[in-house]
């Protein structure tokens, strides 16, 4: 990244917070509705110290990671298999077309009836979005592999194991990473959503509960922490991408 870009990455969120603070200070924003960042920050510190905000954050992160794993791993495996084997695709594609378009939140009552109100139902709800997203992107990542790579693999008489590890999987990886970025957003959304609905812990629970007792600064503090969590998770995707797709970042010498 060029230096100016690095500056802008930091400057844009800082600028928004500064503007918000100034407008609140000038009285252009009603602080009863939208407390200024300084007030939220103070509340946040108090909550970390006395109200177990850290535990709530940890609970949210744990749910998020378990839900992501439960969704992403089978999604990728099934999606790749659908891309590779025509007959498997023919068999599973109608099922995907049937279930994918259902608004996932509408499945919640069904899931609750099936597995009860517990951590399992939470994880299932969180996993659904990433599962379908990874399944679909994995399938298309295989179907869109450039024909020339298949030809090379065939010409060199590549066996099934090497075909998978040396050709199909790496060729699919950039598209999979794109799917993973979308899945991360859906996973966070799902996590906060289930915490709204049934949670006794987690940032979603803090945001919703505080709002219900009209403690806006607490609600806002929960929101800010969840935004920071999302920001960190999203940035860590860059690191993951550099690790999983190392051939892409490098540029050709001119």
């Amino acid at each position: 990244m060029r230096r100016i870009e690095k500056f802008l990455v930091v400057a844009s969120p800082v600028g928004v917070f500064a503007l918000w603070e100034i407008l609140a200070y000038l009285g252009w924003i009603d602080v009863r509705i939208l407390p200024p960042p300084s007030a939220v920050a103070i509340t946040m510190v108090v909550m970390f110290g006395e109200e177990g905000l850290l535990d709530h954050t940890a609970a949210t992160l744990l749910r998020f990671f378990v839900g992501m794993a439960v969704g992403v791993v089978p999604g990728v495996l099934i999606g790749l298999t659908m891309g590779i084997f025509r007959w498997f695709r023919a068999f599973t594609n109608p099922l995907v077309a049937l279930f994918y378009p259902i608004p996932r939140i509408a499945l919640f009552p069904l899931v609750l009836i099936l597995v009860g109100i517990n951590e399992t139902s939470n994880v299932i709800m969180i996993a659904l979005g990433p599962f379908f997203t990874m399944l679909i992107s994995a399938m298309y990542s295989v179907l869109n592999i450039d024909r020339i790579y298949r030809d090379v693999a065939e010409n060199f008489e590549t066996g099934p194991r090497h075909l998978y590890t040396l050709v199909t999987l790496p060729a699919a990886m950039p598209t999979l990473m794109g799917g993973l970025r979308i899945s991360v957003g859906l996973g966070l959304l799902g996590t906060v959503a289930v915490e709204f609905l049934v949670g006794e812990s987690g940032l979603g629970h803090v945001i919703w509960n505080s709002w219900q007792v009209l403690s806006l600064q607490r609600s806002m503090a929960g929101l800010v922490v969840s935004a920071i969590v999302g920001f960190a998770v999203y940035l860590s995707m860059d690191l993951l991408e550099r690790y999983l797709v190392p051939w892409q970042k490098k540029t050709a010498p001119v």
Binding site: I148, Y149, V152, L166, V167, P170, M173, W247
Partner: peptide, 8 residues
Amino acid sequence: EQGVFPWL
């Protein structure tokens, strides 16, 4: 030229 595997 495109036949070289970019990921290897």
